[in-house]
Design a binder for these strands. Structure first.
Lengths: 142, 142
DNA sequence: GTATATGCAAAACTTTTGCATCCTT
DNA sequence: AAGGATGCAAAAGTTTTGCATATAC
């Protein structure tokens, strides 16, 4: 399904800002971008979209399951393209690099725990914070 | 160790605001309070501590490992007393109720995954979002 | 007495909203 | 033509900071 159809299927009109923002996330698949990141990157490309529009579009895309929203420790929301493959995150606290992983055993255990507590799960987020290999090497050189 | 010793051990002077805030979290052990919650609850008790002080104390307590900070989906930080027993969170998206759990199998799997990716883990956060039993019952009555 | 902590107000930062204008269908 | 989308600026919410005063040690 192309971008235009994806917007139409969600009842969203096909507009310049929406296509630009969607395209940006496809170009940066796997990256986690804040609203300000989106604004800045587009501006560098000569595309000036108002921040209000960016926030509105990001919210709409999240509701349409086009994007996933996360809250890492930074205090601001970041978004990434929803590629269907659920995954969790390993975030480097030094350089910010994010590694992704998926582990079915953990997922199954989570479902079991939710059931035991009487919860019907709608979403979950597993974030691990650590120091990545590259930054560990740098530490030794100090 | 009492509260006064706990503050001193972290190089923090023993002041009224710090004792009041620490006491509040002990009274509400297991609860997740935002800076504003702390301000409001203390005010209801007749204790007026400026918000700037609350933010500063919460940050210091987090650095001293007295409190744990979380970022649920709400967009603002919440804190809870660090009782040493690491646990994860099941958050009800309807009523905000938080259930806690601990699962050693999941922890072990996380350690294994971090190792495979070359990360030295410093922290992790597993949040599950769902609808709790109470809210599921309410849904049926509509 | 000295260093640190607090309170207040202002500021910084992220996100939301009102409203006039513009664009998609 | 009509409803929805955008841009701008103002506002709202959260958190930080500068500075004078107050407090702990």
């Amino acid at each position: 399904m192309d971008n235009i159809a994806q917007l139409k299927d969600n009842g969203l009109k096909v507009t310049g800002p929406r296509l630009k923002i969607l395209d940006l996330f496809e170009t940066h698949a796997g990256k986690h971008l804040s609203a300000e990141d989106v604004y800045r990157i587009l501006l560098e490309e000569g595309v000036d979209i108002g921040v209000a529009t960016i926030y509105r579009v990001l919210t709409q895309f999240e509701q349409a399951d086009i994007l996933l929203r996360h809250h890492f420790e930074s205090g601001k929301a970041v978004y990434e393209l929803n590629q269907g493959d659920h995954h969790d995150h390993l975030v480097c606290v030094k350089c910010g690099m994010v590694a992704e992983f998926h582990n079915k055993e953990i997922e199954d255990l989570q479902d079991k725990i939710a059931e035991e507590h009487g919860y019907r799960i709608v979403d979950h987020a597993l974030y691990m914070y650590g120091v990545c290999g590259g930054c560990q090497k740098k530490e030794k050189h100090r």
